Simulated assay, not measured.
Amino acid sequence: MQRICVIGGSRYFGKLLVKRLRAAGHQVTVLNRGSTPPPADVEHLVADRDDETALTTALGSRTFDVVVDQVCYTPVQAAVAARVFAARTRRYVMTSTIEVYDPATAALPAVPPGTPVPEELVDPASWTVATDLPWHDDTYLETHYAEGKRQAEAVFARAEGFAFASVRCAHVLGGGAQDFTGRLAHYTERITQGEEIAVHANARPTVFIHHEELADLLRWAATAGFTGPANACSDGPLDVHDLATVVATQAGREPVYRTVPAGAEASPFSVDRHYAMSNARAKKLGFSFSHTADWLPGAVAEALATAPSPTA
């Protein structure tokens, strides 16, 4: 049994992570702003992670074997957490994102199309950190999401007092109530209604992970002992047409596509640049991934069950 603090952990795959940790016999503390309570057998601390004094007060004298940070988006948040937890944990795991590799958001080395992107493309130990940018501005943060994650990783990678690992998540999918971004519903609704799906002319494949698999991977990462970034994605990349085909097959409707110019906004998961991740490092470290074909049809079925009735 280990003492594990989950920052966030009240929604979506974070909530499932907490259940997985408890089922594995760990002592779990959830720290969030109090909007949603955790299960009854989990300690709940309420604090705003942006408020260093409040965070320190809420933690009191508690120490942990591991902290799993589900909701760190900026280097400012990371710096606060690094100071507060420096003497309170021996391991810190941050949930990061595939978007750190998006070449549209930073000057990154080119990766040939079709070559899975490895972790070393974005090295947090050498990434520039700028805490004086307007990270507290929601509009700025929304448009600089990938850079916020890169810099947050960089702050933790240089912190002293604990070992650090980041899990760079692929696009997370689930059906029904687990479709927390609404992106799968975008396809089920448009296909069942016969509405257009906006796609790029040369849409590139991207990578996905089921919300349950991601919860399992984060549970594994909490105690696996590795440091540095690890990519988290199921085997079997898909482009936007592949995804739409799975939905259309179950819906019994043909997808209708509308091609948009390069650089224009399109439907979710239609990308005109390559940054599909490699999961080779996590496999080498001992995690076994599923294939998208193992779970995507089930997620689509759940999404279709809640989609509006098709129009005539």
Rank of each mutant, 00 (worst) to 15 (best):
D132E: 12
H291R: 10
A276Y: 04
H274R: 11
V246Q: 07
A40N: 13
R150Q: 10
P268Y: 00
A104H: 09
T95V: 15
R150W: 05
A307R: 02
E119S: 00
V111P: 02
A159F: 08
L21A: 07
V246D: 06
A232E: 00
D102C: 13
V172A: 04
G263T: 08
V240G: 04
A301N: 04
Q151C: 11
A110C: 06
R158A: 10
C72Y: 01
D294K: 00
Q27T: 13
V155E: 01
L59A: 04
T89D: 02
S10G: 01
F64P: 06
I4N: 09
G25P: 08
A170N: 08
T139Y: 10
H136R: 14
T53M: 12
K15Y: 05
E43G: 00
E189V: 12
G252F: 04
A82Y: 02
R33N: 12
T128A: 15
A163N: 12
T143N: 09
F208Q: 04
A305R: 05
V129W: 06
T192N: 09
A303F: 01
T115M: 10
Q193G: 14
L304E: 01
A146M: 13
T56K: 07
E265P: 00
P229W: 01
H291V: 03
D242S: 11
T56Q: 09
D102A: 10
E120C: 05
H26N: 09
I4S: 11
F208E: 02
